[in-house]
Design a binder for these strands. Sequence first.
RNA 1: GGUUCUGUAGCUCAGAGGUAGAGCGUCCGUCUCAUAAGCGGGUAGUCGUGGGUUCGAGCCCCACCAGAACUACCA
Length: 530
Amino acid sequence: MNDSDTNKNTFAVTTPLYYVNDLPHIGSAYTTMVADVVARFERMRGKSVLLITGTDEHGQKIQRTAEAAGRSPQEHCDRIAAGFEALWQKLNIQYDRFSRTTSPRHEAIVKQFFQKVWDSGDIYLGQQKGWYCVSCEEFKEERDLLEQHRCPLHPNREVEWRDEQNYFFRLSKYQSQLETLYQNQPNFIQPETRRNEVLNFVSLGLQDFSISRVNLDWGFPIPVDPSHTIYVWFDALLAYITALLDPDSEPTLENALSKWWPINLHLIGKDILRFHAVYWPAMLMSAGLPLPGGVFGHGFLTKNGQKMSKTLGNTIDPIELSDRYGADAIRYYFLKEIEFGQDGDFNETRFVNIVNADLANDLGNLLNRTLGMVKRYCKGHVPNCSAEDIPTDHPLKAIGLTLGSRVAQAYESLAFGEAAIAIFTLIRASNKLIDEQAPWALYKQGQQQAVEQVLYSVLESVRLSAYLLSPIIPNISSEIYQQLGFSTNFNDQTQINDSASFTMNTAWGALPADQTLGEPKPVFVRLELS
RNA sequence: GGUUCUGUAGCUCAGAGGUAGAGCGUCCGUCUCAUAAGCGGGUAGUCGUGGGUUCGAGCCCCACCAGAACUACCA
């Protein structure tokens, strides 16, 4: 993320606009969960946040898929887009904009943006020449072909020589500007390994790329030549800008860019890195616009160590998964257990083990056992002791005092696993403290004050942990807060969206003495392997 | 072929040149406040292989082996 963003109080983050070729897969769900966690964290610390997601709906593939299903392209897109929105509900994603490339407002933005690039002289009519595989619908490089000009994927067919007119974008012109960008803003592309790929790619020399297609209807016409259709990518990237429009404002570039631009962070899968890290900034340079804060290309997911594919039949259905296990468990596993940036594996046994160990055994049970004791030994109220009475070297306070800033730092650098690990250090220390201090024994010995100090410090540690985990597991955190006697609901943006509340809640000792506690009830029921 | 990344306990991963770490799993012990949860302890690693630099190397250099990504218009 960009350092210069810290003095702005807005934060815009995007997921890819998912291609509506099919219903959402687990990879899309993963990116979107991450985006939601980032958005929730930034909201919590008081920023105005815009979480943008949506669907990319143009292109030949869509047209064909729709035809094959006996529907019009728009009908098809509507159905799939609805499927995405339904999944985001299940996963408790709080998106602010759902941007669809087929919307009329988008067309207006595309036209205006095209005009800017056109005025810069960066679009020209050229010849797209090359070997074309009809089965792939794709131009092939000579060196990739087999003998007798046969496509490696369709060796029984010869490729055809095509020579058609296309509009091109002058990408080559931006080579050195892009290289300067990568140099001056090392975080523009993350993680490091993705950055290296792009640097290598760009250093080989950039060629102009075509931004129009002929013989294709499903898309917007090129404004200066309606016989051509705008290439899907050129149109899709611009939908990030369209998404910035307020719902009731005129669809002009000026309006779209007025509040939220530049976008702080684009979260993407590694498969679409080049479009975001090379084409997109070049397009923006051509249009004379400021550039986004950065692009993060995460890895792919495997299942039991194997690539997922429809033909292998080993895909994970995110809808079924969330129906079976619930949003928080899934969010926790993907955020905590998968190193963000690297490829990650989903293994159901491992998933159940981790989630049970952390959320049920360590965290949930900690709250439950403590509330039980408070009920018995302190009449169901937060013990009447203030945090100042607890020494700074107290095992929980010592961790709690710096936890907030360490976790915030981790979230900021998108190191979600690190954030969770830090929080669980406090949770485990709390379980340990209870065993060491044995409040039940202290109580029998009549050491009421000692009992209260132990229980207060544990409840406060649970509170702090729940607060810091709330971007990842908002439902569980809300439940914990309610059992601690607060009315906080972390899904309600109006309750948590200010920086004063962030400062207060991340401080150790925010739990008010004497607060009436709720009824102890498991906040996370252990999962069974089905 | 070229470029880059990865290879550390059964699993997932941390590891600033100076006596190998965490979580999960597994085994043993143990408290009783609790969601058959908690806590303690044990278990397990030729740190991919072979060289080199260094008083000393998972950590630096070279080679090799294995896996992965990128190498332009598929979203």
